Simulated assay, not measured.
Amino acid sequence: MKRLLAAALAAAAFWSMGTASEAAPVVPEHIFEWVQSSARTGYFFNRQEIAYGVDEEGFVNFDELIVPTLEVYDAVQIQDVVQKRRWRGESLQGYNNLVGAATYLSFDMVKGTVTVHEEDDLDHTWSPLTRTYPKTEIVIAALPEKSFNRRFYEAILAYEKENRELILSHTTGVVREADKKRLTKEEVPEENPKERKKKEKKEVEQKPRHIVKLLGSAGNETK
Rank of each mutant, 00 (worst) to 15 (best):
residue 85 R to W: 01
residue 136 T to Y: 07
residue 170 H to K: 10
residue 90 E to G: 00
residue 193 P to E: 06
residue 174 V to T: 15
residue 83 Q to K: 13
residue 126 W to F: 15
residue 171 T to A: 04
residue 197 K to D: 12
residue 137 E to P: 01
residue 200 E to Q: 12
residue 109 M to G: 00
residue 80 D to T: 12
residue 218 A to W: 08
residue 186 E to G: 07
residue 187 E to F: 03
residue 218 A to Y: 05
residue 154 E to Y: 01
residue 186 E to D: 08
residue 165 E to N: 10
residue 180 K to F: 00
residue 177 E to M: 05
residue 95 Y to F: 15
residue 132 T to G: 04
residue 116 V to F: 14
residue 170 H to N: 15
residue 162 E to H: 09
residue 90 E to M: 13
residue 114 V to H: 03
residue 123 D to F: 04
residue 161 K to F: 06
residue 159 Y to C: 06
residue 104 Y to C: 02
residue 124 H to V: 07
residue 158 A to E: 14
residue 130 T to Q: 11
residue 104 Y to S: 13
residue 141 A to R: 15
residue 80 D to Y: 14
residue 217 S to N: 11
residue 205 E to I: 00
residue 173 G to H: 08
residue 204 V to S: 01
residue 145 E to W: 00
residue 182 R to W: 11
residue 133 Y to M: 09
residue 175 V to M: 13
residue 150 R to A: 07
residue 172 T to G: 01
residue 188 V to F: 10
residue 193 P to T: 04
residue 168 L to V: 08
residue 118 E to W: 02
residue 108 D to T: 00
residue 137 E to F: 00
residue 201 K to A: 13
residue 109 M to F: 03
residue 184 T to N: 11
residue 115 T to C: 07
residue 79 Q to M: 13
residue 186 E to I: 12
residue 213 K to N: 08
residue 146 K to F: 05
residue 202 K to E: 11
residue 99 V to Y: 04
residue 139 V to S: 11
residue 123 D to K: 07
residue 176 R to W: 03
residue 143 L to W: 04
residue 175 V to N: 01
residue 191 E to K: 09
residue 163 N to K: 10
residue 121 D to L: 13
residue 188 V to S: 10
residue 100 G to M: 04
residue 130 T to D: 14
residue 186 E to N: 09
residue 123 D to G: 09
residue 127 S to M: 13
residue 99 V to A: 03
residue 191 E to G: 00
residue 157 L to N: 05
residue 113 T to M: 07
residue 95 Y to D: 04
residue 178 A to D: 12
residue 98 L to H: 10
residue 189 P to N: 06
residue 187 E to Y: 03
residue 154 E to R: 12
residue 103 T to S: 14
residue 217 S to T: 11
residue 93 Q to P: 01
residue 194 K to T: 12
residue 148 F to V: 05
residue 147 S to E: 06
residue 206 Q to H: 10
residue 178 A to M: 03
residue 111 K to E: 14
residue 154 E to S: 08
residue 94 G to K: 06
residue 164 R to I: 08
residue 90 E to W: 07
residue 159 Y to A: 05
residue 173 G to C: 08
residue 171 T to K: 09
residue 179 D to M: 09
residue 131 R to Q: 14
residue 124 H to T: 09
residue 79 Q to D: 14
residue 208 P to C: 03
residue 159 Y to G: 02
residue 132 T to A: 09
residue 93 Q to N: 11
residue 85 R to F: 09
residue 184 T to R: 13
residue 182 R to D: 08
residue 214 L to T: 07
residue 177 E to Q: 13
residue 86 R to Q: 15
residue 101 A to T: 05
residue 176 R to F: 08
residue 157 L to Y: 05
residue 168 L to N: 02
residue 199 K to I: 05
residue 101 A to E: 13
residue 143 L to H: 10
residue 124 H to S: 12
residue 172 T to F: 10
residue 194 K to V: 12
residue 211 I to C: 02
residue 152 F to Q: 07
residue 175 V to Y: 02
residue 123 D to S: 03
residue 202 K to Y: 00
residue 204 V to L: 15
residue 178 A to R: 13
residue 153 Y to D: 03
residue 125 T to I: 04
residue 97 N to G: 10
residue 217 S to F: 11
residue 79 Q to W: 02
residue 207 K to P: 00
residue 162 E to D: 14
residue 141 A to Y: 01
residue 162 E to Y: 03
residue 172 T to E: 15
